[in-house]
Measured scan of single mutants.
Amino acid sequence: MNLTVNGKPSTVDGAESLNVTELLSALKVAQAEYVTVELNGEVLEREAFDATTVKDGDAVEFLY
C-alpha cells in the first residue's frame, strides 16, 4: 500500500488496507498513544482509529 505520510511517500508492504491502529503499529510510530492522526485532511478522534480504514493513495499526518 502506497501512502503519503507526513508529506513523504511511504509504503506498507503486504497490505491493501489497514485501520489507523494497525497502521500506527506497522509504521512503528513512537508513542502512538499520544499521536493525533489526520487522514486526508480530517483530524480523527482516537475512538475512531479502529473503525477508520486507511487505503492505498491516502495522505496521513501524525501530529505530536
Score class of each variant (00 low, 15 high):
Val12Phe: 10
Thr53Lys: 11
Leu39Glu: 00
Leu63His: 15
Ser17Val: 12
Asp58Ser: 04
Val43Ser: 07
Asp50Gly: 11
Gly7Leu: 02
Glu47Met: 06
Glu45Thr: 08
Val29Ser: 03
Pro9Cys: 09
Leu23Asp: 01
Val43Glu: 06
Asn19Ala: 05
Met1Arg: 00
Ser25Gly: 09
Phe62Asn: 02
Val12Lys: 01
Asp50Ser: 10
Gly14Cys: 09
Glu33Asp: 13
Ala26Ser: 07
Asn2Leu: 11
Phe62Asp: 03
Gly57Lys: 04
Ala48Gln: 12
Val60His: 03
Glu16Phe: 14
Leu23Phe: 04
Leu24His: 00
Glu22Ile: 04
Leu3Ile: 14
Val37Glu: 00
Asp50Val: 07
Ala59Thr: 14
Val29Leu: 08
Val37His: 00
Asn2Pro: 02
Leu23Ala: 03
Ala30Phe: 12
Ala26Gly: 05
Thr53Cys: 13
Asn2Tyr: 10
Lys55Pro: 01
Thr53Leu: 14
Leu24Asp: 03
Arg46Trp: 07
Asn19Val: 05
Val20Leu: 07
Thr4Trp: 11
Gly7Gln: 04
Thr53Ser: 09
Gly41Leu: 03
Asn2Gly: 06
Leu18Arg: 04
Leu3Asn: 01
Val60Leu: 13
Asn6Ser: 06
Leu3Gly: 00
Thr53Tyr: 15
Glu61Gln: 13
Glu38Leu: 15
Lys55Asp: 03
Leu3Ala: 04
Tyr64Asp: 07
Val5Glu: 03
Ala15Glu: 07
Asp50Arg: 05
Thr11Phe: 15
Gly41Ser: 04
Tyr34Ile: 14
Leu18Glu: 01
Gln31Trp: 15
Leu23Val: 04
Thr36Arg: 10
Asp56Tyr: 05
Ala32Asp: 09
Val20Lys: 00
Val5Arg: 00
Leu44Tyr: 04
Ala26Leu: 14
Val5Met: 05
Lys28Asn: 13
Leu63Pro: 04
Val5Pro: 03
Glu45Phe: 11
Asp56Arg: 03
Glu61His: 11
Thr21Ser: 09
Asp50Thr: 09
Leu23Pro: 03
Val35Phe: 08
Thr11Cys: 12
Ala26Gln: 08
Val35Gly: 03
Thr4Phe: 08
Glu42Arg: 11
Asn2Gln: 12
Thr11Arg: 15
Gly14Tyr: 12
Gly41Gln: 03
Asp56Phe: 04
Val54Ile: 10
Thr36Ala: 07
Val37Ser: 01
Gln31Phe: 15
Thr11Glu: 07
Leu44Gly: 02
Ala59Arg: 14
Asp50Pro: 08
Val43Asp: 03
Lys8Thr: 08
Ser17Cys: 11
Val20Ala: 02
Val29Cys: 10
Val20Glu: 01
Thr36Ile: 13
Glu61Ala: 11
Gly57Trp: 03
Val35His: 04
Glu22Arg: 06
Ser10Pro: 01
Thr53His: 12
Leu27Thr: 01
Thr21Val: 07
Ala48Glu: 11
Asp13Leu: 15
Arg46Leu: 06
Leu18Met: 15
Glu33Asn: 08
Lys55Arg: 12
Thr11Gly: 06
Thr4His: 07
Leu24Ala: 02
Ala15Asp: 06
Thr4Ala: 05
Val12Met: 08
Asp58Lys: 00
Val60Trp: 04
Met1Leu: 12
Glu33Ile: 07
Lys28Ile: 06
Asn40Met: 02
Gly57Cys: 05
Leu27Phe: 07
Lys28Phe: 07
Thr36His: 09
Glu33Leu: 09
Val20Phe: 06
Pro9Glu: 07
